[in-house]
Design a binder for these strands. Structure first.
Lengths: 337, 337
DNA sequence: ATGAAAGCGCTAACAA
DNA sequence: TTGTTAGCGCTTTCAT
């Protein structure tokens, strides 16, 4: 049976085309010095044999892979998906392939992932956030691989940074509500600190409230990521426990939408009786009625900038660690007035 | 400088631990025959040197990778993310790593991805849908790698299948509306046939309408994937052109939510004046007010079954192509009565 | 523009 | 339980 034949190698193609294996190797490189007719003959032979280049062998010999390792907290999040999408599109022309892993908002799972990824000798490692286990930090240092931290401004960067201050962004939101004369303001977010960006947003909320001499109300919505349902439940307990609340800032648009829905179920007017704001500029917040005031952290821009930084590093144009800051935009919508 | 040292290899660890490289290799395998004290000594030496196993070399020598190639239409879709998430969790214990690519609903992009992935000699290829270019089909056949098609019931399967009939699921939805006495029913979906699952749903709609002797109204909402915004716009033109429509079935919950929002903006009562249904059981449809009637295709179940099939194949328990069918559930909610 | 020799780092196969 | 030998498929390097 034909299927019992071993997978053809470069050697087989070389013999079929009447050249040396080295010439076949050249034929498969776009920029190699080779006669076009020879290449055509080789490609025809390769096609006939069903030859597929073995990039494992190629990587081993050249001591160079085309992998870029990327970790995100969740595979199921439109914001991170946008960042990865932009990254992927920008790296595709360079022939770089993304090795994607998700940490489930857990630094130990991140450690496990990074350890696994480093065995593949990636060209770079791009992570979400600036919180890592000591072992992760050490592995990345030992690997001497370019590292880019995204979506955050780490206190002690591992290398390059493409991010923004989550705390600062939420402070702008608080200022907006206070400027409207609102004082009884609550924050709906995760009840544990696994999600460091969520934690930063909560801290930003509290810092801003304190600055205004106000007392912030914190509503715990469960373990990150906070879903629409958890947002709705949190809004329910807020309405039960502190019905005089005038505004609610949610850790994300998803929980904000859940909160909005709970208000609608209870006949609480938004805005009017209560204003709602989210974070992340997810599509749902732009489409729903009323639309939800939010902060746009430009997730695709983060991916594009990370790709830019990475290309500079790989081209040797960047010797020192780079910091590229995003400026999140406050988007005022119908849910706050 | 310490950093100028070459990356340590097994050889270096072996010398440091006073054993042969082969013993080091064994120490890094969980199930290898090795003295535990020797292993401890080796691990200590490896740790001190910052040694990281080179899985490229390992794969080349053993002619075996731990990659599973997976393609999905979009990285930014909660349903496919759930499938990939479940797949990933089930494959992790086996030490299999997912190589994820997204096709952007384009069979040619799928072809490009598969070609790239096959160079890595994956253990299996898992694709979304049953529509592929001839070249893709041929590459996969040549590679003699296990293939699983998901989310669909392909007419000509490439190998194993874990899916359901999108057409049939939508027919059940039409039957539901007709049973309620509704006759003027519209379908909002993509205007090109790139998304074969969307196309199947539209066909199911038309077939069911025809079976009931009714004429279906088709509203084109743009190129897949259909967003919430496009759903809203499509509902706008439907309300303009055919205001007597009694029910709308949307290609997904996202467009259904957009359609619902547009109704709310225009003061059209849902349900009452118009009933709305979606597809996919996305969270937004369960939380919004009114909640949206939908079909649950059990995306995580698809991933779990695919992982199950894959494990059976890798264990040699499955010689012949397998078909595992999902039965999507109709979820009746507030948007239809 | 093409070829020959060597070896990337690891592990299969066999030996002790 | 550990060691020795050989070679996976490719590309670097040097030669022609």
């Amino acid at each position: 049976m034909a299927n019992l034949r071993k997978t053809p190698t470069m050697h087989d193609v070389a013999r079929a085309a009447g050249v040396s294996p080295m010439t076949v190797s050249r034929a498969f490189k776009t920029d190699a010095l080779i006669n076009e007719q020879t290449r055509a003959r080789i490609m025809a032979a390769a096609d006939k044999l069903g030859y597929v280049l073995d990039s494992t062998a190629s990587s081993l010999r050249s001591q160079k892979t085309d992998f870029v390792a990327v970790t995100v907290p969740s595979i199921n999040n439109a914001n991170f998906a946008d960042t990865v999408g932009a990254l992927s599109e920008k790296l595709k022309p360079r022939g770089l392939q993304i090795l994607l892993g998700y940490t489930n908002y857990d630094v130990h799972e991140e450690e496990r992932l990074i350890a696994q990824f480093l065995r593949r000798k990636p060209q770079a490692v791009i992570v979400t956030g600036g919180q890592h286990t000591p072992r992760t930090r050490q592995m990345l240092e030992n690997a001497a691989v370019p590292v880019i931290e995204t979506w955050d401004l780490p206190a002690q960067p591992l290398g390059h940074v493409v991010g923004f201050s989550n705390a600062q962004a939420v402070q702008a939101m608080v200022d907006h509500f206070v400027a409207q004369g609102l004082t009884r303001i609550a924050f709906i977010g995760g009840d544990v600190d696994r999600d460091t960006r969520g934690l930063d947003r909560r801290r930003g909320f509290q810092a801003a409230m304190q600055r205004h001499g106000l007392e912030g109300r914190l509503i715990a919505a469960g373990a990150p990521p906070i879903s629409m349902r958890e947002g709705a439940e949190a809004m329910g307990s807020l309405l039960d426990s502190a019905p005089d609340t005038e505004a609610v800032i949610c850790v994300s648009d998803l929980s904000a939408f859940g909160a909005l829905s709970e208000c609608q179920r209870r006949g609480v007017a938004v805005p009017g009786q209560i204003s709602i704001a989210g974070f992340g500029n997810y599509e749902v917040g732009a489409i729903c009625v009323p639309s939800i005031t939010t902060i746009d952290p430009a997730p695709r821009r983060i991916g594009e900038l990370a790709a830019e930084v990475l290309c500079d590093v790989l081209d040797g144009n960047t010797e020192h660690p780079v910091q590229r800051h995003i400026t999140p935009q406050l988007l005022l919508r119908e849910s706050s007035v």
